[in-house]
Design a protein around this nucleic acid. Structure first.
Lengths: 209, 209
DNA sequence: TAGATTGTTAATCGATTAACAATC
DNA sequence: TAGATTGTTAATCGATTAACAATC
């Protein structure tokens, strides 16, 4: 963390770069210029170069960027060279959907446990896991060095569950509950507020008529 | 659309205001000042007043804002006073989860149809709908004035399906496919790239150590 | 009327774009 | 060497914050 802080606007664009570079790599493309990438991604070449240069010079004058190399480097910046252990709290439809999504594993995100308070769901198979009761959550987290908790529970319990998990050492929350978490400094939250997203779509839809 | 364009930064904040105002309303709070809302939401009072004043003066000097009135007005701005008809394309885990999420209906978003190309899923009950084959999608959309299509299909088919739906009159896409859609001007896309979101979390997690 | 708080203008800050020297 | 394209500085643009006059 010696470096200067990178703005969240830049960070938010990195996964998209990573995605495009991965596709280019899979297509066998060896090199790409900021101008070509600009056309492909519909952002300015200036922005692309500025973004990359926040992390060091990955390109070469007169040549452009080596796709494979840039892909690897951005992967490292994003922490995708490391493995992450996750738990999912809430084994409803959404929690189940996320557990079943195989792509995350490919990126080093491993689902280590699923928990629910509904007795009817306990023992149910979700992905390659069996739903455990909420009472076992805290011990499980302590014993398995869990990085990330995925919250797929109603907002009424989300804040409370998050507090408990912070105490057990969870460092990051992927929050699908329809509320804001209030966590201590140093704990990271990424919200996915689906209703908010749909409502935003509604605004733009109605504006565009 | 006579008014000047509102920036997407402002639009993106509106659903959150709406959410907080809804909660305040439910708690029976009658009035609130930008300063109080600022403390509650952890944004500056200045920003709150600027944001609201993009759409007109909803407050009263010396008093603040009437919660119920402001809630209603922001709802109208967001188009939540209108009904929206949706279809879901892709009846996998995620499509199923979205169909089952009752909260959307409460906001005027009605799921009118679910489609999948997998013969095993056809006829399966999802929410209060039965999965229909993809072949029926286009006629269905034309006959039911569908506003919004929710894409829960792999990226390999998403672009193709979106093209078809645009031709049938769909005006907005809620895109969960892991790719960018390229739609004509006037068609609205709201992306929910879950992998990108999780990867962003990964960056911030690794940065915070 | 005095106090409170908005609506709005002005100042600041940060992010994006343009330009170009450095260099492969 | 000449051409291409980066890395980086400077200019512009837009968004956020501060300040305060208007007014309830």
């Amino acid at each position: 963390m010696g470096e200067k802080d990178i703005s969240q606007a830049v960070i938010a664009r990195l996964p998209r770069y990573f995605r495009y570079l991965g596709e280019l790599k899979d297509e066998g493309v060896e090199r790409i210029s900021s101008q070509e990438l600009s056309t492909l991604m519909q952002v300015t070449a200036s922005q692309i170069r500025q973004d990359f240069n926040n992390f060091g010079g990955f390109g070469q004058q007169g040549y452009g960027y080596n796709v494979e190399y840039l892909y690897q480097e951005i992967g490292k910046i994003l922490g995708l060279d490391k493995e992450h252990q996750l738990i999912v709290v809430g084994a409803g439809n959404l929690g189940t959907a996320l557990c079943n999504y195989a792509n995350f594993k490919r990126r080093g995100f491993y689902f280590a446990g699923v928990f629910d308070q509904n007795p009817d769901l306990i023992g149910k198979k979700v992905g390659n896991l069996f739903v455990k009761p909420m009472e076992e959550m805290e011990d499980f987290v302590k014993n398995n060095t869990i990085d990330i908790a995925v919250l797929c529970i109603p907002k009424t319990s989300a804040v409370n569950v998050a507090d408990k998990l912070v105490k057990c050492g969870v460092k990051a929350f992927w929050n699908f509950a329809h509320c804001d978490l209030n966590v201590p400094k140093g704990i990271v939250v990424e919200n996915v507020h689906l209703s908010d997203s749909l409502i935003k779509l509604s605004y733009n839809l109605n504006e565009n008529r």
